[in-house]
Each structure stands twice: as structure tokens, then as C-alpha cells.
Computed example of a mutant assay.
Amino acid sequence: MSRISGRAILAGVVGQPIDHSLSPAIHNGWLDAAGVDGTYAAFGPKDADGFNALLNAGRAGLIAGVNVTAPFKEQAFAACDRVSEAARLVKSANILVFKDGQIHGDSSDGRGVINALSEQAPTLQIEGAKVVLLGAGGASRAAAGALVTAGARVSVLNRTKERAQALADDLGGLVTVADSEAETYDADLVINALSVPPTYDVRRLKPTAVVMDMTYKPLITPFLQSGRNHGLMVVDGLAMLIGQAVPSFEAFFAQTPPSIDIRSTILTLLGEAR
């Protein structure tokens, strides 16, 4: 176990509800393996005022940084004194680092997507790839920002085209809006960014296509299972979760996570077969 002293670095994840979060298990697993004098906790403020109190604790130097999830992401971005280009592009910050009384915001959700693809679909060439995002919410926005930065050609397929167009407009025309599912079947990569199983017909995709789901409960979602049944390469949401935790760990604890099999630890917690 890592040693906790009076000089311990405190970081964590903040949201409501937050009991379900796997982030403490991921980060504390890395901290233990590296012997870091620190801990990563879950914070569940009941409302916006509670979240502001946590931000004030950070400004006062009591907390090194936090990851932010629903429903506080919008409030977190607005509170930042400085934001990274990644956060500015998607207008969202899921990493807050407190330094010298200021809040520095960054977005790692998109990097989580890139890291997951690198791990589980290493043959996919992202630069120049045609990528289709199912959904136009915050998760899709973060993925779109990272993918266009990596050189992909990204389009969004959403039931409400106006919302998809708003996302495309916010990203400065770097993303297009798909008019129909049929026009996306030549995609190299299809990512489900919806919170519910999509009705997308993966059987129409080309044999070399990759399908990814941002959901990790269950690990192999119906969408991914359909892809597997069709012989496609699949990328699961747990790979993205761990992938986005890497830059957070580096930001909070000033070092790269140790090379341990943290995925197996999380799979055990989820009750999933390895």
C-alpha cells in the first residue's frame, strides 16, 4: 500500500451520484503500485454550492486536482481561470488542476478514445479515417475534438439533426452531420456515444471496420456483440475509461502510471470474465 503522510497529495473525482465511479479503484491501484504518498477520493457534493465549496478548497491548496463528471462539467468549465486547447475546443473540462490559487482546466475524454483505439484497434489508422459518432452529447463532443485533431474525418449521426449541427458548428466546421445511417456504412470506425444501445446496423459495415462503445457496463454491450458476430474488431468502454485516467494521473501526481494490469483489477470489480 502507498504511504499516506502529512504531505500526501489529495485528488479525486467529483459528481452526483458518484458511488458507482471506478476512477478511485484505477488511480489508487496505480498509487499503491508506485508507492506514491497520496490518495484519490470520490466527492459527491449535493448541489452547485457544494461544488463551489470544493473548488474553493482547491484554490486554497487543500486538493491537487479533481476529475469532474455529471452534473458539474458545465460549472467546472465556467470556473476555470485557464483551459487547454482540448478543453477550449469542446467547451468542457473533466480535469481541474489547482495551482497557486487558480484552476487549470483540461479535457481527457477525447484522449481516452485515442488511447483505447491504440490499445485495442492498433491496426486502425486514425489519420484520414472516416469516423461516425452516434449521438451528439458531451461524450461525442469530446471524442470529435480529439479525432479531428488526430486527422480523422468525423461525422455525427443523431436522431435530432439540430443538435448534431450545433456540435458541428461549435467545432468550427471540422465535423459534418450525417443525413442518414445508410450514408455511413463506408465508415472505418463507428463509435457509440449514446447512453442507450443504438439501433445501428453494423452488418452493413465493411469487414475492416472497427466498432467502439463508450459504455462499459456490460463490458461487451449489445452493440459490440453485434460487431463481434459480424467479425468486426471491437473496442470497449473500459479501455476508454482507463485511457482517459492516464493524463489525469499525470496531471495530479506528476508521474506516469506504473505498468500494471489495472484492467484485470477493474474487471474483477465489475464481475466480468477476463
Score class of each variant (00 low, 15 high):
70 A>V: 15
70 A>P: 00
71 P>W: 02
72 F>H: 06
72 F>K: 02
72 F>N: 01
72 F>C: 04
73 K>A: 06
73 K>Y: 06
73 K>M: 07
73 K>G: 04
74 E>Q: 13
74 E>R: 08
74 E>P: 02
75 Q>T: 15
76 A>T: 07
76 A>P: 02
76 A>C: 09
76 A>D: 06
77 F>R: 07
78 A>Y: 00
78 A>M: 01
78 A>Q: 09
78 A>C: 00
78 A>T: 09
79 A>G: 10
79 A>V: 12
81 D>L: 12
81 D>H: 15
81 D>A: 12
81 D>P: 13
81 D>R: 10
82 R>Y: 14
84 S>H: 10
84 S>W: 10
85 E>Y: 05
85 E>A: 14
85 E>T: 11
86 A>G: 05
86 A>T: 10
86 A>D: 11
87 A>H: 04
87 A>N: 08
88 R>S: 13
88 R>N: 11
88 R>Q: 14
89 L>G: 00
89 L>P: 00
89 L>H: 01
89 L>W: 00
89 L>K: 08
90 V>S: 06
90 V>N: 03
90 V>F: 04
91 K>M: 13
91 K>N: 14
91 K>L: 11
91 K>P: 01
91 K>Q: 15
92 S>E: 01
92 S>G: 08
93 A>Q: 04
93 A>I: 07
94 N>P: 10
94 N>V: 09
94 N>L: 06
94 N>G: 07
94 N>A: 08
94 N>T: 11
95 I>M: 07
95 I>Y: 00
95 I>K: 01
95 I>R: 01
95 I>F: 01
96 L>F: 01
96 L>T: 03
96 L>Q: 01
96 L>M: 11
96 L>K: 04
97 V>Q: 07
97 V>F: 01
98 F>Q: 03
98 F>K: 03
98 F>I: 11
99 K>H: 09
99 K>M: 00
100 D>Y: 07
100 D>H: 13
101 G>N: 06
101 G>Q: 05
102 Q>K: 15
102 Q>G: 13
103 I>Y: 05
103 I>K: 05
103 I>A: 09
104 H>I: 15
104 H>K: 09
104 H>Y: 14
104 H>N: 09
105 G>V: 05
105 G>S: 03
105 G>F: 00
105 G>W: 00
105 G>P: 01
105 G>E: 03
105 G>R: 01
106 D>V: 09
106 D>N: 14
106 D>A: 11
106 D>E: 13
106 D>L: 06
107 S>E: 11
107 S>C: 11
107 S>W: 02
107 S>H: 02
108 S>D: 13
108 S>V: 11
108 S>F: 07
108 S>T: 15
109 D>T: 09
109 D>A: 08
109 D>I: 08
109 D>G: 02
109 D>K: 05
110 G>E: 04
110 G>Y: 02
111 R>I: 12
111 R>S: 07
111 R>V: 08
111 R>T: 12
111 R>F: 11
111 R>D: 12
